[in-house]
Each structure stands twice: as structure tokens, then as C-alpha cells.
Amino acid sequence: MTQQAIANKVTVVALVENEPGVLNRVASLFRRRAFNIDSLTVGRTHKPDVSRMTIRVDAGSEYARKIANNLQKLVNVIDVRVIDNEPHIERDLALIKVRSDDAHSRNTLTEICDRYPARIVDVGPHVAIIEMVGTEVFVEKFIDEVRPIGIVEMIRTGVVSMGRGTRIHDTSVTRRDLARAIVQASSARNGRKS
């Protein structure tokens, strides 16, 4: 992938309720609206009820906004943002298994890893596993350099993103907090009546 192609990508970040079926709702939306997405990662946040999705879209920001508007319609999606031009940190993690059955390949590998935020995390007689963390562009570049040595297996997590500085994308309340509060308030009212 060229760097130009990656530069064209836009990121959509969604805070979603950590409930069964939410990923299904999001995936179903992408399928039925025929949205083409590049990667989707989901993970927990510091709040147990809230998960965060990072969606990379291989199209302009107008397209990303269309996706965001549709995502926002899902009841379980708490908040959506399109990270376009604003300064942000993004990371992609790759585990790459490469051939390392001779001294030359091992030396080349060590030399490449020195120039990147990459570590050799496992070495066997025939293969080694490298862990590479960085921006999507950087990971692509690294893979291109390693490729001639002989990649036998690879997995990437997909990009996760966070805005820099005080651009905080979070939700102050979650639905379960609120549901509990409502039930407690109702019980208290009922209690007073009786």
C-alpha cells in the first residue's frame, strides 16, 4: 500500500455500550449500507460499561461522516467522532513470523528491527516472531523491509486512535448507571408513598 493511499484514510471512533450484540449491530449496518471499511477494532475502556471502536475507512471524510451519521442512529452507540485533520496518536500492532534459519537472515532482521520500534519476541531454530508497533504507515514500511527475508505468518490488530491533548472523547454517564438510578428513585418514591 502506498503512503498516499494510507493518507487518504479516515478514522471513525465510536463509544458503544458494552453489551451483547453491539458488534453485530455495527457489522450489520456496514453490510446493509454497503459501507466499505478497512479495519475495525473494538476494545474496553476504563469504564466497564463502555467499549470503544476504531474504524478505518478507505475513502474521503465525507464518506466517513456518512458512516458516522448512520452509526449515531444505533441506540447502543453512545457517541461517534470522525478523526480527520485533528492531531491524534494512532497505533497499529503487527506480529510477524519470518524465516530465520541462517545467520544472514538473522543479522538482517536484527538490523532492520534496530531502526524501528520493533522487537524480536520469539526465536526458534527456523523462524522468529517480531512485534512491531507504530502508525499504520510505519508498520507498512517495516513489513516492506522484512518481506524479502520471507514472511510465513502475520497478524495485525488494526489501527487504534486517540486525539491529542485535551480533546477528550468520553462519556460521563452510562445507561446502566442511569437505569439503576431510575429504579432507585422509583423505589424511594414508592417507599415514601407506603
Binding site: 441506540v75 453512545i78 457517541d79 452510562t174 445507561r175 437505569a179 422509583s186 423505589s187
Partner: peptide, 13 residues
């Protein structure tokens, strides 16, 4: 049975 009175809070809606 407690019927939730008052407004509904759906943060995503």
C-alpha cells in the same frame, strides 16, 4: 414491579 417513572435516559439516543 416498579414502573420507571420520569424521563428515559438513553445516552446513545
Amino acid at each position: 414491579f416498579i414502573y420507571p417513572e420520569g424521563p428515559i435516559f438513553l445516552p446513545g439516543y
